[in-house]
Amino acid sequence: MSPLLLADLTVFTLGLLVGFEVISKVPATLHTPLMSGANAIHGVVLVGVMLLAASISTPAGYALLAVAAFFAAMNVAGGYVVTDRMLAMFRSRS
């Protein structure tokens, strides 16, 4: 196993543990915005699609890249906006 893979696995495992810890404290009232907000966070896949662009140089590759960019951008933009819309509705009694 390469040192790089070990480092990545460490980050992944700790990320999971932090996720469990932080998210188990979210009240049931907010579970829909939580899921939607978490959904938006995996929109970071757009960063991956951008990095992928550097190694694409065929027509099929361009098509794949465009579709992937469309998907990822829709995920990230829509996800954050719709989560914000929902959370704006949660108002206090005052």
């Binding site: 700790l14 999971l16 996720g19 966070i41």
Partner: peptide, 9 residues
């Protein structure tokens, strides 16, 4: 990191 967080959620 983001993937792990969402996976946990």
């Amino acid at each position: 990191i983001a993937g792990a967080l969402v996976g946990a959620a």
